[in-house]
Design a protein around this nucleic acid. Structure first.
Lengths: 243, 243
DNA sequence: ATCCTCCACTGTTCTAGAACTCTGCTGCCC
DNA sequence: GGGCAGCAGAGTTCTAGAACAGTGGAGGAT
């Protein structure tokens, strides 16, 4: 029956804001623990409780004798969870934003044509988007849709409406199955430019095909995510002998 | 240059022993934090540091106003994809071969030291192996083990005995839990040479920590897999209403 | 120039309390 | 009997220090 928030949680939140807001750049060193304790008017123990929280979240890294540093943001993606990428991120309290770049009708490459089961010569609707987490580019996503669906989708304002919602509410299409394949690649100049990194940067390339209930392929997504901003995590449990 | 072990680590180890040894049954309530602090002759703060460790390992659960309880080991049987990412490809009917490269005792880097919960200065047993599929190098694997375990493991003929079997049958250690994290990287010259590709080749780097039933870290595996030889695939099923 | 020792600064561990909240029970009051 | 106030005992948060331990640089010795 009490709205009281522990001091160390408040401090953690304040520091989190500073990092998120850019007041503390990645790799920067925070003030010493003693200085921060003075600034917040708490003891070392209390401040350290706050830091431990941030460290557990991977936002900072403490190094004995050196200082406390802002970790380069790397987002964990639990591959066993079925949530969409954006959903996973927003669940972690990050500010996720999708920026519409451009759309077009174009002939697909062979992988896309095969994935969407198109006849040769059939054009597809191409949709380029950029996902930002905490205002930093996180992934460059190019989606391909069959021309028939694409023509309907193109009428919607994709700058504000999520593609999934357009499919579900305007077209009544429900995605029920998907297959995702992840490759390790290096970025080429086009993707690197959009993501603000150098060509040759290591990255994940994810390709996902989504099917409707009737088995018709709906979307082919191709996503590029720089390796320094992302990682895939799995927790494994082995059954068997136990104490 | 110091074998000193913090008091809270010693206490955590003692409690771990009690749980492992059956002195504390699952679901049993531990003595109150104040009583335990008295018993070990430390302050509440120090004792709580020990409890936090055990809680993070999932061995105990603290409940405000009620007490501290030995966690009942909850096994997730619904996670059925237990095959490790970098692990056995043999199930796919490929001719898999493991080539022993070298082993050594060496000081670990920071990531390894942290993952294995080592004190600085403590050396680890390093084991380098190459996995070949159809006689082609597939992954370069470097495993790190705590020195105590490593000394026993080093006595085995690792060129012919799988590490997992050495742990299980010679040391009686059963891995019950693991966490795997996958990064996108480019290969550096050492790994590239072993794998027979050019430096700068895009690759997956997988890091896995494996824990025994009592929560002790056993192995830190670091695996490099060139991107042109491997990819991760997963099937997703969406059922009914989803977020 | 090179090595080494020392030192300042950093994070880390710990003491000895005090006051707080949360939970379940007990006993009073109706 | 039913409800509710209070209480005891549990975990939680916090103070104000002190001492320990790892790092890297400054300055002296060689």
């Amino acid at each position: 029956m009490n709205g009281r928030i522990p001091r160390y949680l408040q401090i953690a939140e304040t520091l989190r804001e500073r990092i998120r807001g850019g007041a503390l750049a990645r790799g920067a060193r925070l003030d010493s623990q003693r200085a921060l304790a003075r600034e917040f008017g708490v003891t070392l123990m209390t401040l350290r409780q706050a830091l431990e929280l941030l460290e557990k979240d991977g936002l900072i890294a403490c190094r004995h004798g050196l200082g406390t540093f802002v970790a380069s943001p790397s987002i964990d993606y639990d591959i066993l969870h079925l949530r969409t990428f954006a959903g996973d991120l927003s669940a972690k309290g990050e500010a996720v934003e999708t920026r519409f770049l451009r759309s077009d009708f174009r002939p697909p490459d062979r992988r896309v044509a095969q994935g969407l089961r198109l006849r040769t010569g059939e054009a597809v609707f191409v949709l380029d988007r950029l996902r930002l987490v905490n205002r930093h580019p996180m992934s460059y996503q190019r989606s391909f849709l069959p021309a028939g669906i694409g023509r309907e989708v193109a009428k919607a304002d994709l700058a504000i409406t999520p593609l999934r919602n357009v499919l579900r509410f305007k077209l009544g299409i429900e995605v029920t199955r998907a297959r995702e394949t992840v490759f390790a690649v290096t970025l080429r100049s086009l993707e690197a430019r959009e993501l603000g990194c150098r060509p040759g940067t290591p990255a994940f390339r994810s390709e996902r095909i989504s099917w409707a209930a009737d088995g018709a392929p709906i979307v082919f997504d191709r996503v590029f995510i720089p390796g320094d901003r992302f990682r895939i995590t799995r927790e494994l449990q082995y059954e068997g002998a136990r104490p």
